[in-house]
């Protein structure tokens, strides 16, 4: 990385000598072949399909290989409304994907419940149960927005160091790669969200009792 002077590198490449680093090569390979999981939940999936066809051509970014099995996929595009009934299956699919794996939450429903947020049957955002890398707003988002999300994800992958404190989850054995699958309760999912991943937003004014964000050793308990 920082071992070789940038100008020297450019000079060398003019002479036909290409220098690179393990990290660059590794991330270049990963970001250039992000294979999405072939799965859609609602109307956003139609935009996802449009993005994969000739007009928008997601193949330009190496992400055209929609895999029909989570075992072969790198990217889960949560395209559409996640009902509470569907949520455990989505989490299970995510758990079955091999690391490194990424999630794009596509559209208003997937990021927040969207127009169904106040309903009894729709999950208020898939980030309650699985870690989301890129959120796309829109109802539904245009295919360009999905392409932009993919580019954003590629930039994120490019910036991931292979070693050190900031290395991504798949290179850190201490971090989990599977997440809790909720079960069905009488009215709602149990639990309603994975609190290690997500905390309910706090009202700036009126909430009576503050939920502590984390219990630490210095706390009252």
């Amino acid at each position: 990385m920082g071992q070789i002077d940038q100008n020297l590198r450019i000079e060398l490449s003019k002479q036909g000598i290409v220098t690179t680093t393990m990290q660059e090569l590794y991330n270049w390979g990963r970001r250039s072949s992000v294979w999405p999981l072939n799965f859609g939940l609602a109307c956003c999936a139609i935009e996802m399909i449009a993005a994969s066809m000739a007009r928008f051509d997601i193949a330009r970014f190496g992400a055209e290989v929609f895999r029909p099995s989570p075992r072969q996929a790198d990217l889960m595009i949560v395209a559409g409304t996640v009902t509470k009934k569907m949520a455990p299956m989505v989490v299970r699919l995510y758990n079955q994907m091999p690391e490194p794996k990424y999630v794009i939450a596509m559209g208003a429903c997937a990021i927040s419940g969207g127009p169904f947020k106040q309903g009894y049957n729709v999950l208020k955002g898939i980030d309650r149960f699985i870690p989301v890398d890129v959120h796309i707003p829109g109802c539904p988002p245009r295919p360009e927005a999905l392409l932009h999300a993919l580019i954003t994800l590629q930039k994120k992958i490019d910036g991931q160091p292979l070693t050190g404190e900031d290395r991504p989850r798949h290179l850190n054995a201490d971090l989990p790669s599977e997440f809790l699958v909720p079960t069905y309760g009488p009215n709602d999912l149990i639990p309603a969200s994975n609190l290690t991943l997500w905390r309910p937003p706090q009202s700036p004014v009126a909430e009576p009792a503050e939920v502590p964000l984390a219990t630490n050793a210095e706390g009252q308990k």
């Binding site: 009894y120 049957n121 009215n187 709602d188 309910p200």
Partner: peptide, 25 residues
């Protein structure tokens, strides 16, 4: 068919009480 087995109540009835899962907006 639409709700899962073990769900309680019939949500399209007017007397259905939704779970109190309101969040700050």
């Amino acid at each position: 068919i639409l709700m899962w087995d073990g769900f309680e109540g019939h949500p399209m009835r007017r007397d259905y009480v939704e779970p109190d899962d309101y969040e700050y907006e």
